[in-house]
Design a protein around this nucleic acid. Structure first.
Length: 495
RNA sequence: GCCCCCAUCGUCUAGCGGCCUAGGACAUCGCCCUCUCACGGCGAAGACAGGGGUUCAAAUCCCCUUGGGGGUACCA
């Protein structure tokens, strides 16, 4: 098939949040459509009444929007081939089910789930194939009446072709051949009148003129069934491309116990959509031997299915974090500041409304911390001491670094000089430190580290002069005084 | 059970018969930078699952085994 009028789709079932696996599938479909100037359709597969929820629909749309995976047809934007919720397309499925029934390509089956289950287990126990035994395939009208009189609600089964083979020409894996004898007469319409996945997906993909079905490789085995439905209905068969699965670090299917699996969780943890998209793209796709960083625009330009790998990929949080750090460092100060402020406010570290001066101060702090965080969420704990007066001291740092005998005198000297320096800027602060270092005759680190513990409570922070400048004189002096007392008390205790 | 997919460093991968004493990235380790931590720079360690073929030549092609994953639902 040509790539002239490419139409791809993402068809999630709204039974939870947008999973990273789903997001990756959506991304590949989106990239493929965008690359060829085609159409990306979003369709909601909500035929499972039990598990589908509206909140899930909202969450999925939110997730896609956050990632920037805009759709051309679907919920919220309509399109010529709607409706885009399967639950609103029931008449359409009914019509085609009836057509198959009329053509004797499908039939009513009155077996109950319990009966089927029992027979399946029995077959398995006897070493036989657990496929449906077709006992309802040739029912007479009278038999049907009797069954219905028992109060049985029939399902509709597809009369599958059981001779020969069905071939799937997968764009990623090549030709896959299935023996038709392996297929059984699967259900296409449930007893509640809803279509099943394997049926609805064919009807919709055909009616929505989908040219390329790009989905997870857990659908490979479903493909021959779907192809048979295409054939029974005389629909042209689209192209298929099955993506490798995304696994957890134990190589099993990625799930909650592997950590965050919903994209909104990643958003909340402070990952950037560009980083997420870049990382997801590399899960199963690569461009060259050396390139790994791609903007969405570059991905669109470079994406192709023939560079999609066939092996399953383990989701590597560490690499995602690294990549997020890369994008975080690329943010301009204004942007970073805007991202960080709401998080500080949420933690109560910043008032709801802030003036330009406060914003400027946050910007300085943000820039100081920019190369030291990998997610936006990390910003809050690493910047706390800038916003809170009751700082927490790392006891080990206090013991090892603050409680040194030269510290009280040195702090007194520092206090004296810092009180006078004007203005209280990085350069001037540096001068003070150099003078003090000279006077105490120690290494710079010996004067700075105690100060660091005194003002931040920890032995890790951005450069000391910038921290003090951002902290401001009053707070610096106050913390130095408090720490000097602390050091004295500790030293006295030691004697 | 049966069917299908997959198999290169710990992880993501490059490799599409000779360019491979297998390249890159994350992670790890070391060194440098340095007031700490990051960032950055340099370097190290680290893989073709096993066995048969085919070929002058195989990580690359074929078969088997093993391992992993998926399907076998009135879930999608």
């Amino acid at each position: 098939m040509s790539t002239a009028n490419v139409r791809t789709r993402f068809a999630p079932s709204p039974t939870g949040f947008l999973h990273v696996g789903g997001a990756r599938t959506a991304l590949f479909n989106w990239l493929y459509a965008r690359h060829y100037g085609g159409i990306f359709v979003l369709r909601i597969e909500d035929t499972d009444l039990e598990r589908s929820t509206e909140e899930s629909v909202t969450a999925i749309l939110e997730g896609l929007e956050w990632l920037g995976l805009t759709w051309d047809e679907g919920p919220g934007c309509g399109g010529d081939y709607g409706p885009y919720f399967q639950s609103e397309r029931l008449d359409i499925y009914k019509y085609y089910v009836q057509r198959l029934l009329d053509e004797d390509k499908a039939y009513l089956c009155y077996c109950t789930p319990e009966e089927l289950k029992a027979r399946r287990e029995e077959a398995l126990a006897q070493g036989r194939d657990p496929k449906y035994d077709r006992r309802c395939a040739q029912l007479t009208d009278a038999e049907r009446k009797a069954l219905e009189a028992e109060g049985r609600q029939p399902v509709v089964r597809f009369r599958s072709n059981d001779v020969g083979t069905t071939e799937v020409n997968d764009l990623i894996r090549g030709q896959i051949i299935f023996e038709n004898g392996m297929l059984d007469d699967f259900v296409i319409q449930k007893s509640d009148g809803m279509p099943t996945y394997n049926f609805a997906v064919v009807i919709d993909d055909h009616l929505m003129k989908i040219t390329h079905v790009i989905r997870g490789d857990d659908h490979i085995s479903n493909t021959p069934r779907q192809i048979q439905v295409y054939q029974a209905l005389d629909f042209p068969v689209p192209e298929f491309a099955h993506l490798p699965m995304i696994l957890g670090n134990d190589k099993t299917r990625l799930s909650k116990r592997h950590g965050a699996t919903s994209v909104t969780e990643y958003r909340d943890q402070g990952f950037l959509p560009k980083a997420m998209v870049n990382y997801l793209a590399l899960l199963g796709w690569s461009y060259s031997a050396t390139d790994t960083l791609f903007t969405p625009e570059e991905l669109i330009e470079k994406f192709s299915l023939d560079r999609v790998s066939r092996n399953p990929a383990v989701f590597d949080m560490k690499k995602l974090e690294w990549m997020n750090g890369v994008y975080l460092r690329e943010l301009d100060p204004e942007e970073l500041t805007g991202l960080v402020i709401p998080r500080l406010q949420k933690e109560g570290l910043l008032p709801e409304s802030i003036d330009a001066a406060a914003r400027e101060r946050v910007k300085k702090i943000a820039v100081s911390l920019q190369s030291r965080i990998r997610t936006l969420a990390e910003f809050v704990p690493s910047s706390r001491y800038f916003f809170e007066d009751d700082i927490e001291y790392d006891p080990a740092a206090v013991d090892k670094i603050l409680a040194r005998d030269y510290v009280p005198d040195m702090f007194a000297m520092l206090l004296d000089k810092l009180m006078q320096v004007e203005p209280f800027t990085e350069d001037n602060i540096e001068q003070v430190f150099l003078e003090v270092q000279e006077e105490v005759g120690r290494k710079l680190g010996d004067v700075i580290q105690p100060v660091r513990v005194a003002v931040t409570g920890t032995r890790v922070s951005p450069g000391m002069y910038e921290v003090l400048a951002a902290l401001g004189r009053p707070r610096t002096l106050q913390r130095l005084k408090a720490a000097a007392e602390m050091a004295k008390a500790k030293l006295a205790g030691k004697d």
